Amino acid sequence: MPDLIPKLLIGGEFRAQTTLEPLRVINPCTEELLWTAPRGGAAEVEEALHHARAALKIWSKVHGWERAKVLRGIARAMEARKGALARALSHEIGRPIAQSEGEVLIAIEQFDWFAGEAERLFGETIPSRQGGRLATALEPVGIVAAFTAWNFPINLLARKIAPALAAGCPIICRPSEQTPLTSTLIAEACAEGGAPAGTVQMLFGPAETITPLLMAAEEVRKISLTGSTRVGQMLLAEAAKTVKRCSMELGGHAPVVICEDADVDNAAALCALFKFRNAGQVCIAPNRFYVHESLVERFGSGMVKAGEALVLGDSQDRATTMGPLTLASQRDRVEALSADTEASGARRLTGGRRPANHN
Score class of each variant (00 low, 15 high):
residue 20 L to A: 14
residue 323 G to M: 11
residue 58 I to Y: 11
residue 100 S to Y: 04
residue 65 W to T: 15
residue 154 I to H: 06
residue 206 P to K: 13
residue 128 S to L: 12
residue 327 L to G: 03
residue 260 E to V: 10
residue 175 P to F: 00
residue 270 L to N: 09
residue 176 S to P: 08
residue 355 P to I: 06
residue 150 W to Q: 03
residue 190 C to E: 05
residue 274 F to R: 08
residue 300 G to M: 05
residue 36 T to K: 06
residue 338 S to A: 14
residue 4 L to S: 04
residue 50 H to V: 09
residue 180 P to L: 01
residue 166 A to P: 02
residue 284 I to Y: 12
residue 175 P to G: 00
residue 47 E to C: 04
residue 56 L to G: 03
residue 296 V to M: 13
residue 258 I to P: 00
residue 101 E to S: 10
residue 209 T to F: 03
residue 71 L to N: 06
residue 309 A to D: 06
residue 331 R to W: 08
residue 271 C to L: 14
residue 350 T to I: 12
residue 154 I to D: 08
residue 168 G to D: 07
residue 248 M to G: 07
residue 48 A to H: 05
residue 56 L to T: 03
residue 169 C to R: 09
residue 267 A to E: 08
residue 344 S to G: 09
residue 52 A to M: 08
residue 236 L to D: 06
residue 332 D to S: 04
residue 329 S to C: 10
residue 109 E to K: 12
residue 241 K to N: 10
residue 352 G to Y: 07
residue 301 S to I: 11
residue 4 L to H: 12
residue 237 A to P: 10
residue 129 R to S: 14
residue 306 A to Q: 13
residue 286 P to E: 04
residue 28 P to G: 09
residue 237 A to D: 14
residue 250 L to A: 13
residue 117 E to F: 00
residue 213 L to C: 05
residue 359 N to W: 12
residue 304 V to Q: 15
residue 38 P to V: 00
residue 275 K to W: 01
residue 32 E to A: 14
residue 314 D to P: 08
residue 254 A to R: 06
residue 184 T to A: 00
residue 295 L to K: 14
residue 149 A to W: 05
residue 298 R to H: 11
residue 258 I to N: 00
residue 352 G to K: 08
residue 50 H to Y: 14
residue 229 T to I: 15
residue 40 G to E: 01
residue 321 T to E: 11
residue 97 I to R: 09
residue 301 S to Q: 15
residue 114 F to T: 01
residue 243 V to Y: 10
residue 30 T to S: 15
residue 143 I to N: 08
residue 60 S to M: 08
residue 197 A to Y: 02
residue 96 P to G: 09
residue 180 P to S: 00
residue 149 A to R: 10
residue 103 E to F: 12
residue 269 A to H: 12
residue 194 G to S: 02
residue 50 H to S: 13
residue 211 T to Y: 07
residue 187 A to G: 00
residue 122 F to N: 01
residue 170 P to A: 11
residue 289 F to D: 02
residue 348 R to H: 06
residue 23 L to Y: 04
residue 251 G to M: 11
residue 264 V to T: 09
residue 323 G to P: 07
residue 78 M to I: 06
residue 216 A to V: 11
residue 220 V to G: 02
residue 204 F to R: 01
residue 167 A to V: 09
residue 178 Q to R: 13
residue 81 R to L: 13
residue 335 E to I: 08
residue 12 G to V: 04
residue 39 R to W: 04
residue 13 E to D: 14
residue 42 A to K: 14
residue 57 K to V: 15
residue 193 G to H: 00
residue 112 D to L: 12
residue 219 E to L: 07
residue 185 L to Y: 03
residue 161 I to N: 00
residue 192 E to D: 11
residue 78 M to K: 09
residue 198 G to L: 10
residue 298 R to L: 13
residue 295 L to T: 06
residue 304 V to G: 10
residue 84 A to M: 02
residue 153 P to K: 06
residue 93 I to S: 08
residue 255 P to W: 02
residue 280 G to L: 06
residue 63 H to C: 10
residue 305 K to R: 15
residue 153 P to Q: 09
residue 102 G to Y: 07
residue 3 D to I: 07
residue 263 D to Q: 03
residue 121 L to Y: 06
residue 19 T to N: 12
residue 144 V to C: 15
residue 311 V to C: 03
residue 3 D to K: 07
residue 141 V to N: 02
residue 194 G to I: 05
residue 311 V to P: 02
residue 258 I to G: 01
residue 142 G to V: 05
residue 20 L to C: 02
residue 165 L to Q: 01
residue 163 P to H: 10
residue 13 E to A: 11
residue 239 A to F: 03
residue 230 R to F: 11
residue 155 N to P: 01
residue 230 R to N: 11
residue 129 R to L: 14
residue 29 C to A: 14
